[in-house]
């Protein structure tokens, strides 16, 4: 021990000096840390900005029960301006729900086909085409809604107008399908092949294997795929603006026109005076949308964690 401690000090000082590699390593650590927390900085920054703009309205002109329970959105009325978003919330929710009803079965079916059945070239071609679908700009989907879906719905269902919930939901379903499909496919790919072999060795048919073993094993991934689709539905603006008919109205049938929360902001923000109650009320809608997406993401996160622990 004594002999060792006599030698140790010089050895330690030589080996312990901060050399070039140490500094490079340290600077990279700091750089990566900054990159890592930048997401938090941006989220907090955006939230603060939106909140600051909307705050005056929330503290001043806003009446909570009117905001959430009234369907009268008349921010430019000269006598008495009212700010009720109920109709828009109902419209957005209805369209998102219907879009998911259309999108999820098709997307999960497509994901099952790509992950479990398609082989080689078929598989590659399908994946490329689906990715291409995701690359179509949302305004082009708006064209399709106006010039193809609109007359189609009028002709097929014999209704006076084809812009509304059904049109928007179909467009939204098509827009969400590629991302939902690819996340769902990842979820299926993450199921180990040993599960498939074990199930097939027990005499399970392909369908039984998928239904009894692969779907339960992939359910977390499928859930996050679905929630991503819902988030997409709440956030989509341009295509919905063009496909919805943009009239304030609680939709009672799938052919009814409606107005989306996002579309209201997009259509009106440019025409308001900065700092006016109207301007601020649009930011209040923004805060509301922000909170909804936040809650959806948190729910997904908690469910996934809960399932993992169980």
């Amino acid at each position: 021990m004594t002999a060792h401690s006599a030698i140790q000090p010089t050895h330690v000082t030589v080996g312990d000096a901060k050399d070039k590699n140490w500094y490079i390593d340290k600077s990279f650590e700091i750089l990566m840390f900054i990159c890592g927390i930048s997401a938090i900085i941006f989220v907090v920054g955006i939230f603060l900005f939106v909140f600051k703009e909307g705050l005056g309205f929330i503290l001043g002109d806003m009446n909570f029960s009117e905001f959430f329970l009234s369907q009268k959105w008349r921010p430019t009325s000269l006598n008495k301006a009212t700010y009720g978003i109920l109709a828009m919330v109902a419209g957005t929710a209805a369209v998102t729900g219907l879009a998911m009803l259309i999108c999820l079965p098709i997307s999960i079916g497509a994901a099952i086909f790509i992950a479990e059945f398609a082989k080689g070239r078929t598989r590659e071609i399908l994946k490329i085409v689906i990715e291409f679908l995701a690359a179509i700009p949302s305004v082009v989907w708006g064209f399709i809604a106006l010039s193809i879906m609109n007359p189609l719905i009028i002709n097929v269902f014999d209704v006076p107008m084809g812009l509304g919930v059904l049109n928007s939901a179909i467009i939204l379903a098509l827009m969400a399908a590629p991302i939902v499909t690819s996340i769902a496919e990842d979820a299926f790919k993450a199921v180990p092949d040993t599960y498939r072999e074990a199930a097939e060795a027990l005499g399970a048919t392909r369908w039984q294997t998928i239904y009894k073993v692969i779907l339960p094993a992939a359910k977390n991934g499928l859930l996050s795929a679905g929630l991503l689709g819902v988030g997409r539905g709440f956030g989509e603006t341009m295509a919905i603006l063009m496909a919805s008919g943009h009239s304030i109205n609680i939709p009672t049938s799938v052919f009814d026109s409606f107005r989306a929360l996002t579309a209201t902001i997009a259509a009106e923000l440019g025409e308001t005076a900065v700092g006016s109650p109207h301007y601020q009320s649009l930011f209040a809608i923004g805060i509301f949308l922000f909170l909804i997406t936040f809650i959806i993401n948190m729910t997904a996160d908690f469910i996934v964690r809960g399932v993992r622990k169980g």
Partner: peptide, 28 residues
């Protein structure tokens, strides 16, 4: 395959309950 039981090199507990693991084949 239903006539033939297979045990693999690495244990494959399917992500089902213990009961459902054993009950899987009869159910299928």
């Amino acid at each position: 395959r239903r006539k033939i039981g297979v045990v693999f090199p690495l244990p494959v507990g399917l992500p089902l309950s213990v009961y459902d693991n054993v009950a899987l084949a009869p159910r299928l």
